[in-house]
């Protein structure tokens, strides 16, 4: 990001200043003045563009690729904590697997906001669903890798936390996942960045990053409220 900032800033300023200077310089020409050519002509400029920009592109490409590969080409570690997030018009809900470490299956036909069955869980038949904890806020322990399983209920949404530099669309019909590690405790906002209808602007949730002990307490409280 910083490299890009410097390169973009320099090329921006240089181009604007040279443009202005040339306009200033050559708009007040004296009569009889001969037209001159830029030293090196077109060939020089083309060569300069290809070499300079080509190198820049290569450099940015390589750096960018590394940064990208670090996030997306490495699978989450074996100790990553799974959390499921479901996006719907216009709220995020989160689900923790509970002591058994397993998420019960989602039954779309059971989803009902009135009865607060957000994920469409069948508590009577699915053993795995019974200890699942559904929350409206997302809490994670600090410095612990999180494996976020993303599910869209209705239309497209997106999961964006500015401070964590993560953004990922929810694609209906396609269960994507994301992994990240939060390193600074605090309260951050999760917002939706994919246009999802009239309440799009108001679709948000809080991400609480806390110590392991606080997190366990929080999870117990949430479990008690189920």
């Amino acid at each position: 990001m910083a490299d890009t900032m410097i390169e973009a800033g320099v090329s921006f300023l240089a181009a604007q200043i040279i443009l202005a200077v040339f306009i200033w310089w050559f708009s007040t020409s004296k009569p009889g003045q001969k037209i001159r050519n830029f030293p090196g002509g077109a060939r020089g400029l083309v060569a300069a563009a290809i070499v300079l920009v080509g190198l820049e592109v290569l450099a940015l490409g390589v750096f960018g690729q590394k940064a990208w590969a670090n996030i997306y080409f490495t699978p989450p570690g074996p100790n990553a904590m799974p959390i499921q997030v479901q996006a719907g018009q216009f709220a995020f809900y989160f689900r923790y697997p509970g002591p058994d470490g397993k998420f019960g299956p989602i039954h779309p036909e059971l989803i009902n906001e009135a009865t607060q069955n957000i994920f469409g869980l069948d508590l009577d038949h699915d053993q795995d669903s019974k200890d699942d904890i559904v929350t409206a806020q997302m809490a994670v322990p600090v410095n612990r890798e999180i494996h976020l399983l993303m599910h869209a209920k209705d239309v497209g949404h997106s999961f964006y936390v500015r401070e964590l530099r993560i953004q990922q669309d929810f694609v209906p019909g396609l269960d994507l996942s994301l992994h990240f590690t939060a390193t600074t405790p605090g309260k951050y906002e999760i917002v939706c960045t994919q246009l999802c209808g009239l309440g799009h602007y108001n679709m948000k949730a809080y991400l609480l990053v806390m110590s392991q002990a606080d997190f366990e307490n929080w999870l117990k409280q949430q479990a008690a409220m189920q």
């Binding site: 181009a15 040339f22 003045q33 830029f38 400029l45 083309v46 290809i50 592109v57 960018g64």
Partner: peptide, 26 residues
């Protein structure tokens, strides 16, 4: 991402030709 970055090459060439042609004009 790569061809997107490569697009800057013809764009830069165009810009440089425009600005470079200004040099010494009336």
């Amino acid at each position: 991402s790569f061809p997107t970055l490569v697009i800057t090459i013809p764009s830069t060439i165009l810009t440089l030709i425009w600005i470079g042609s200004l040099y010494g004009c009336k």
